[in-house]
Design a protein around this nucleic acid. Structure first.
Length: 719
DNA sequence: ATAGACATTCTTTTT
DNA sequence: GAATGTCTAT
């Protein structure tokens, strides 16, 4: 059978397993997605499974789409009957189908993390809670963590007064969401889990339907997701989980690698298959990745190998500043392009989104086309969120988050005082903000009534086809008008037009079809789509553009050439992670993911200085570079230049000291200078004060931390 | 009530 | 250096 052509032995074994529970430990680049999709295709084409019995779940929309695309290329029959999507997407689908049983309004809305934060802030304000003591961000994090552990507020055990209060606020937040008919991301999962748990007939129904359950990136599942899978997998179902413990990089949001062990034990998994042959990277790259990850204790154990040759050495480049780093990359990319490398096969990876700015700046100036993934996404832009808020009010006028967002945008004279009155009225009436409008008197009340009339008017258009409805909303709400008058509004107007296009191009998932005469269900599913899929597709998708993204969003992707930028202590590994439990190990796995994205060539870049929070930071090279055997590396710049500074590489570069803070003399040492200390090792001078016998310098010793040392006492060797 | 100036905080990663 | 929050002059 040609489906199976070209599979190696373990891959073949995994694909053709009979429908039983199986755990596949799939190393980076070992053909994981191929195994997953080929297995579905094989079981269907050999009549061991029918499409409607298949449920495949991934973490990202990109991965889901990829799987769907590959499947429809492999299978002549349609793939419509299968449920393929993200955890959140599938839960949303189930909740829409059984909204009554789930205790939700038919057109319930989804809060993305920004909406959730806004909702929490609103809650704290209405309860007069001190947001110094209960920071909204922290509270969101707390609530989500509880939900991800499967705990409702009533089930949380408070271990101190502070937490006791946080649990109370969690309860109030639950009530607020329920009243408004909205759910946040974690709620989608928890609500769906509870639905299946409590409703036996429904659970039976799905258990009898889904016989083949496949999970991608299993190492990234959290406790709740695992329990959800357990509920769904009934008698006779086969759970096929693919994962790699070395690529677990989402522990910070509740992912639990322990699920792999638990799955093996609880399902008595007989089929454990390791995919260790790597088809992606050249030997040197793989050796480096293996060397790095070996520093992590407590791995399930796995070593990648390849038949490909060693390939090129890994290039290490040190620059003086982040700007220099960006310019180096630009020059290098230009040279690569001249040699015939496609730009879209070159990726620039970084630890945090903020780093993209310097890179984008240099790329833009050089006229190199590039595409940034993540960052500000389409559906997260302010003007789009405003437009969506109006649409949400059409679907559900009790959506207070949406209401608060646009009640006075564009400005219609409803200020803080009116809103305050309205919130009070809502509280005494036990109603939503919208429901409280009749209870506000005076001038503010009149203006609010006008706004209510606007919503009624918009709602009258709800039967229109989606794109026309969006058009209607943009005009009637005054959003178009507002941005037309704003001087920087051109781009925003264009985005609003793009929203109309998105609505026109939107095809509702099957199973969620609008019915005649009913408040448009298309609208509800379009809004869900906007929340769940924040608009990954940007303009210029097909272009030959450089690919910029965080290491997190690069997981699952591969490129011929990869630059890992900002490989510095404090940045990668990130300083915040060092205080966290197992934080460094997660950072190291992140580095492992980054390195294994590259097929042919890998650059590791670091800079001595970098702007952060608007001030200069001096960083040591990342320990991860040192964890790679020196034999695999090729240093493009002299290491730890004796002068303490790398020589600026480019002619048009302004003299180093003009842009940098003037190096301060203190005992012959300067800021930015590398020094060696007998006890603390290598460090960088980051600050100095005093003079003469009093002179003290602050030194970043990386591992050993930041120290103030008196020059008269400390023995420092300039390096 | 609003716009604009000013100050403060933040950034790790995402569905 | 942005994005939010607070204050001040209209």
């Amino acid at each position: 059978m040609n489906l199976l052509n070209g599979l190696n032995e373990p891959q073949l074994a995994a694909v053709t397993l009979p429908p039983q529970h199986a755990l596949i430990l799939a190393g980076a680049g070992s053909g994981k997605t191929r195994v997953l999709t080929t297995r579905i295709a094989w079981l269907i084409s050999t009549s061991q499974a029918r499409p409607p019995t298949v449920l495949a779940v991934t973490f990202t929309n990109t991965a889901a789409k990829e799987m769907l695309a590959r499947l429809s290329a492999m299978l002549p029959i349609n793939v419509k009957g299968m449920w393929i999507g993200t955890f959140h997407g599938l839960c949303n689908r189930m909740l829409r189908a059984h909204y009554r049983d789930a205790g939700l309004p038919q057109l319930f809305q989804i809060l993305d993390s920004a909406d959730q934060l806004a909702a929490v802030k609103r809650l704290l304000k209405s309860l007069n809670v001190d947001d110094e003591k209960y920071p909204p961000r922290e509270l969101c994090w707390f609530i989500n963590a509880q939900k991800e552990a499967g705990l409702r507020s009533a089930a949380v055990e408070a271990w101190d007064d502070w937490t006791k209060k946080r649990v109370e606020l969690y309860a109030a937040y639950e009530a607020q969401c329920q009243k408004e008919g909205v759910v946040d991301f974690a709620e989608l999962l928890l609500r769906c889990y509870e639905l299946l748990e409590r409703n036996e007939p429904l659970r039976r129904h799905y258990q009898e339907r889904f016989k083949l359950i496949l999970v991608d990136e299993f190492q990234d599942t959290n406790k709740l997701q695992y329990r959800w899978l357990k509920l769904l997998a009934g008698e006779g179902a086969a759970l096929f989980c693919v994962g790699d413990d070395d690529q677990s990089i989402y522990a910070f949001r509740g992912a639990d690698v322990g699920n792999m062990r638990d799955f093996e034990r609880e399902f008595k998994v007989q089929n454990l298959i390791r995919l260790e042959q790597n088809y992606r990277s050249h030997g040197n790259i793989l050796d480096a990745a293996n060397a790095i990850i070996e520093n992590n204790p407590s791995r399930l154990g796995k070593n990648l190998w390849t038949e490909a040759g060693a390939g090129e050495p890994i290039r290490v480049h040190e620059s003086y500043s982040d700007g220099d780093e960006a310019r180096f990359i630009v020059e290098e990319v230009k040279a690569l392009a001249r040699d015939g490398h496609a730009r879209k096969e070159i990726a620039l990876l970084y630890r945090s989104n903020a780093q993209s700015r310097a890179l984008e700046h240099a790329l833009f100036n050089a006229g190199l086309p590039y595409r940034v993934y993540g960052g500000l996404r389409f559906f997260e832009r302010a003007e789009i969120k405003h437009a969506l808020a109006y649409l949400r009010l059409i679907a559900n006028e009790n959506d207070d988050t949406a209401f608060a967002r646009v009640v006075n945008f564009p400005a219609r004279g409803i200020g803080a005082r009116s809103i305050e009155q309205l919130a009070d009225a809502a509280k005494t009436q036990g109603s939503s903000l919208h429901g409280a409008i009749p209870y506000v008197t005076g001038a503010g009340g009149a203006k609010l009534a006008t706004f209510a009339a606007l919503i009624v008017k918009l709602r009258e258009a709800a039967h229109l086809p989606l794109p026309e409805l969006v058009e209607h909303v943009l005009d009637l709400s005054g959003l178009r008008e507002h941005y037309r008058n704003e001087k920087e509004g051109q781009e925003r107007l264009a985005n609003l037009d793009e929203l109309v296009n998105a609505a026109a191009g939107f095809v509702a998932e099957d199973g969620v079809v609008g019915e005649e005469g009913e408040l448009s269900l298309d609208l509800a599913s379009f809004l869900a789509h906007a929340s769940l899929e924040a608009g990954e597709h940007q303009a210029g998708e097909g272009d030959d553009a450089l690919q910029l993204m965080t290491v997190h969003s690069a997981k699952g992707l591969e490129f011929n050439i990869v630059f890992i930028c900002g490989l510095e202590e404090g940045l990668f590994p990130h300083e915040n992670s060092l205080n966290e439990n197992k934080g460094l190990e997660e950072e190291r796995r992140l580095m492992y993911v980054a390195v294994t994205r590259a097929r042919q060539r890998l650059y590791l870049c670091h800079a001595q200085t970098r702007m952060l929070h608007g001030q200069m930071r001096y960083n040591l090279p990342s320990r991860f570079i040192e964890e790679i055997p020196a034999g695999l590396l090729k240093f493009l710049t002299a290491r730890a230049n004796k002068s303490g500074y790398a020589v600026p590489t480019y002619a048009n570069e302004a003299p180093v000291f003009d842009s940098a803070p003037r190096p301060q003399k203190s005992g012959g040492l300067r800021i930015g200078q590398n020094v060696m200390h007998a006890k603390f090792g290598l460090g960088v001078i980051v600050n100095a004060e005093g003079g003469g016998n009093d002179a003290r310098v602050q030194i970043n010793f990386g591992n050993a931390g930041m120290k103030w040392l008196a020059l008269s006492v400390a023995k420092l060797e300039p390096v």
